[in-house]
Design a protein around this nucleic acid. Structure first.
Lengths: 228, 228
DNA sequence: CGCGGAATTGAGGCTCATCAAGGAGTGTGG
DNA sequence: CCACACTCCTTGATGAGCCTCAATTCCGCG
């Protein structure tokens, strides 16, 4: 039932939703095919979701089709949380994906009276905000090789630092996350391979072995150390 | 006492802090000189701030000095709100600035027991998240002229759509907000002037008259209209 | 076996950054 | 009152980095 998308088994971090789900009025499991849209931007936000197995991405589109992916969600991650009534992103399954749904209506009612649920919402919103803030720096000021290195570092840590990292997303999806084109992502990965920092373990190049994490982290432009 | 940084007088939107300030244990006014740091990244978050007069920016730095500005705060705006214990940005006064401080310690204690205060925090955090999400799309996928047009639209609406828009920030600060270099910002503004969309009312080029808001909005790449 | 999707790689071009020069406004001190 | 320094902005020349277009390969799959 639980995902095994990596060498390490990734279990849903149910703790994140513990307080919320304890209070649930309604919840259920649901499956989405690879590529299926889970909810659309500006649609009413009726549910909160937690990835059980698979992977999900969220994005915004410009009218001419340019896409910016805001986040990837892996097993255990919660998404679709909105404080307004409408979603601000479109969410889609990257691969065959199982999610837990939590009916939002019930959650809101509860939040009226329950401080701990509101605190849960606040904590999750803050976590999303923090991720977005870090991503602003990447998109605004990092070079292409730095972005790719930072992406690999993020995925490595989120996938639990497994020996073989299996990326669920395509080069195009990585590119739309990093504000690059897919060819630039591919070239950056090839150069990391050529310089011995990683190697591919797969004909489709989605299984990656990180051979030198410290050098990779170095390449992923660091935050200035605050001198306070 | 209140700021008059525009043709229209901008009054602090005290409503935003109404619930918070009603409960305050301690608060006071404070002044910062142009360029002064208000708090630093990773410093303990002791206060919450509201701009009374002037303008503030928040930013992150990379170790080699590249800077990404996350937001500008104008009179009435609240900043410095963190759910963790430490600030995730550095904040500095753009011009001579007066802020209201609200002691955070008291606020936290109150949040333990008061649902409406927690709701206020959640609402403000969500507002920040929404702004960051929109900025991701700008930084990741918009061209330089689109970014500058979008910036002007944002400032126009935040400054209340006054006839003459007075920007408190320099070209360099605009550039660091938009992920560009200052020369590119300057050139984009000159081209908007040449095409009759705006004109300058100032020797230092910080007072801008928007002559064609609809054309400007058109240039600022639109979100795809969701077909749901 | 043939087709479509995904990834790599190369060639060329465009956008934007960098480097540089010059002008205009502001503040300071003589 | 003016000379001078300093900051901020504009504008131009050049080049680097990344995107676009295209060809090719490899894999998965019907």
């Amino acid at each position: 039932m639980f995902a095994k998308i990596n060498a390490n088994s990734i279990r849903p971090k149910t703790s994140e939703l513990s307080t919320l789900s304890r209070e649930q009025l309604f919840s259920s499991e649901y499956r989405y095919r690879r590529g299926a849209e889970i909810f659309g931007e500006a649609e009413p936000a009726e549910f909160i979701y937690q990835v059980v197995e698979g992977a999900v991405l969220s994005y915004k589109l410009l009218s001419d089709g340019r896409r910016q992916i805001g986040a990837f969600y892996l097993p255990g991650d919660i998404f679709g949380l909105e404080n307004g009534s409408a979603h601000r992103f479109t969410a889609a399954a990257i691969v065959h994906t199982t999610v837990w749904l939590l009916k939002r209506r019930g959650l809101e009612d509860i939040a009226e009276g329950d401080v701990s649920v509101t605190h849960d919402l606040l904590r999750l919103t803050t976590k999303n905000l923090q991720h977005a803030e870090d991503h602003l720096l990447l998109l605004g000021r990092k070079t292409a090789p730095e972005r790719v290195a930072a992406f690999l570092c993020e995925m490595d840590s989120r996938l639990g630092g497994a020996t073989v990292m299996t990326l669920p997303m395509s080069r195009q999806e990585i590119a739309d996350y990093l504000g690059l084109c897919l060819e630039t992502v591919s070239r950056a990965l090839s150069r990391l391979r050529d310089s011995g920092i990683l190697s591919f373990r797969d004909p489709t190049q989605r299984k990656i072995v990180l051979l030198d994490r410290s050098k990779l982290a170095e390449l992923a432009a660091q935050l200035a150390r605050p001198e306070h």
